[in-house]
Design a protein around this nucleic acid. Sequence first.
DNA 1: GACTAACCGAGACGGTACGTCTTGTCTTGGG
DNA 2: CCCAAGACAAGACGTACCGTCTCGGTTAGTC
Lengths: 209, 209, 209, 209
Amino acid sequence: MATTAPGRKRSETARLAILDAARELVAADGYENLTIEGIASRAGVGKVTIYRWWPSKGLVLAEALLDRAPVINTRPPAVTGRIADDLRNWLHDWVRVLASPEGSSQIRALTSAASDDQAVAVRLYEAFTAPLHTMIVQRLGHAAQIGEIRSDADLESAADAVVGSLLYRMLTRTEEVTTQRADGLLDLLLHGLTPHSRRSEDPQETADR
Amino acid sequence: MATTAPGRKRSETARLAILDAARELVAADGYENLTIEGIASRAGVGKVTIYRWWPSKGLVLAEALLDRAPVINTRPPAVTGRIADDLRNWLHDWVRVLASPEGSSQIRALTSAASDDQAVAVRLYEAFTAPLHTMIVQRLGHAAQIGEIRSDADLESAADAVVGSLLYRMLTRTEEVTTQRADGLLDLLLHGLTPHSRRSEDPQETADR
Amino acid sequence: MATTAPGRKRSETARLAILDAARELVAADGYENLTIEGIASRAGVGKVTIYRWWPSKGLVLAEALLDRAPVINTRPPAVTGRIADDLRNWLHDWVRVLASPEGSSQIRALTSAASDDQAVAVRLYEAFTAPLHTMIVQRLGHAAQIGEIRSDADLESAADAVVGSLLYRMLTRTEEVTTQRADGLLDLLLHGLTPHSRRSEDPQETADR
Amino acid sequence: MATTAPGRKRSETARLAILDAARELVAADGYENLTIEGIASRAGVGKVTIYRWWPSKGLVLAEALLDRAPVINTRPPAVTGRIADDLRNWLHDWVRVLASPEGSSQIRALTSAASDDQAVAVRLYEAFTAPLHTMIVQRLGHAAQIGEIRSDADLESAADAVVGSLLYRMLTRTEEVTTQRADGLLDLLLHGLTPHSRRSEDPQETADR
DNA sequence: GACTAACCGAGACGGTACGTCTTGTCTTGGG
DNA sequence: CCCAAGACAAGACGTACCGTCTCGGTTAGTC
């Protein structure tokens, strides 16, 4: 039993050539000008080999960029000291990525791909947005545990604000993503997250809720 | 001088038929399946009439949706009472739009169009993102003036957070755009925006900046 | 009434370029290596322009060769003297065509095309085989009328024999299509077609029919 | 010495499965739709097994049809009595084959195959056309020996006429092959082949040659 | 009232890319 | 060394749109 599948094995060479070609072409021409024929031709591969293993152009790109792009830094924020310092450092790293040609073009390409292919959207969320979101929530959760920030705040919304303001700005690509903006946002959020014991006499935003 | 140009006038009938066709087709099939031929055919119009008046497919859609879509509500928040109430009401209206099939599909289509056409990106920013952003900044500015919130905060970043977190979430997870989420964000931001006189003993987020 | 069809007219330039390209390519590579892409490319034409006007590759070729190939000589036999001389001259012309590289390759290509496309078979019959057949029948009919050959013979069968033996031989053994062969056939047929008055005492081939 | 070759022996099962599959598929879909992949798949055989033993698709078909098709009757005409009767009976058998769906489709397929593969053309000639031709020449030769027909006629041309008129008509497949036509041809040829002693006063077809 | 300029619909044009099919070769594991 | 399975590079298939270019025909002014 458990007889191995017959036939020739999938070529790892071809697989890597395809992913490399996709990454290079999207960097050069953008997602809108990426074609299966172009990828196949640059990779020295038959089109069928792409169609055999990937259901859509977008998912080729997703695999090419999400699994293998060092520029998309997804390390979590450090836990070296105060929450403000750790998040600021981490955000500055991200701003650097988003402001760089490679980083912005890669994320923009993935977003374009996601917007016309639901499967890419799912992959992008699972491999990029969700981890990013979770890292922030976890770092804030740690701060909450040690009393650095208040423990009853909606950390999910805080992470939304961080992720959304950076990425939506980059996607609409009409204004630069800057460290100043990131610092302003962080300042604001940490004000809102400071332990509320000191602020209980302020009723206006929570009274009627 | 200033002689009026000779020749037949642009057909308003054709213009409206094109915009209607674009809106209907994008609603039915999505931006990725929108074609100039499809629009021309449905509008009963020659392709040249589209190419004559619009430089790209995306800008046809931008005109069809941005200028004529009642569902994309762009009224500013009211100034009827406390900032928390006014913003909450306004945000709830927006959540309704973003969670609706029409609203989300229209904004998603515009974002797709923007992501492969810089001109659409500019139009989308000018006609949608920027006004939205400005409304929030202005309402917060008013609150700051009357001392309802602290006056030294970065209101631009606050507006970024509101716009970005709602829209980025809608783009990636429409089903999770909820009023609870919006309330959580608002709660957090208003905490961060309360007058800081009471919080000056807390150095950590501003000390080294 | 009788409003003319709207839209751009068919391009005669494109039509001729396609037919020329088809003729050149089939001469160079044979019917089996003829492709629509190849024709389009050599003619400097879009594939759709071919698909728009011809239902199949074979019919492009049929039009290219049947309507425009001077090498396929379809003039009828002259009526200058004795039937034997006129048919012999005419057959020698045909042998020249069938033994030439152009003539044989063109007819061979058409026959290949006919064998995988019924519509080509019909065209080939109507434009080539049938006229050929008719010419022979008519020349023999004239001879029968003036008493040069017997009047009760099956001229259709005679024409079949002429056309079939030349063409079938060319299809299978081009190198053996010779004037000697044609002369042998003609000799035989004219023996069979001489007035039968002199032969009535020979019963064997007609007795039991 | 004479050591037997090492390794596994050729599978007769596979060979027969391939030939059967080829025959069935060509009967069902015609030569133009016959593919190596289709044969391999129906025969339950790897494509390589076909490529290993046959140099081309056409030769698979040639082997499948020429060596194993009972419908292609290649028995020589009997020598039971008068040449007219023997040839007429034999021709009627052939007309039956050519008018039948199996016979005509098989010969048509072989001719198609021959027209894009010179090796098939050679095989078809050797195994089909040449034997047919030879049989006719031999039967006529026997009749000439016993004085039934004239001995100085070009029997090769007579055989050409018989083979060519039947097969060319079938190949262009626009008109039926009928026994009447065959009888007409035979009648004509035997007239032309009757001993010329009775006709020596007729100079016109041989005088000037 | 004709002229002229710009509009309009229809639709053919040269192209690019699509996703599929088949070709002939190569690779794998088993007989 | 054979075999079935099946991956591979190549390249043609027929289709969909692209953006451009006629083609008649329709509105407007301006002479």
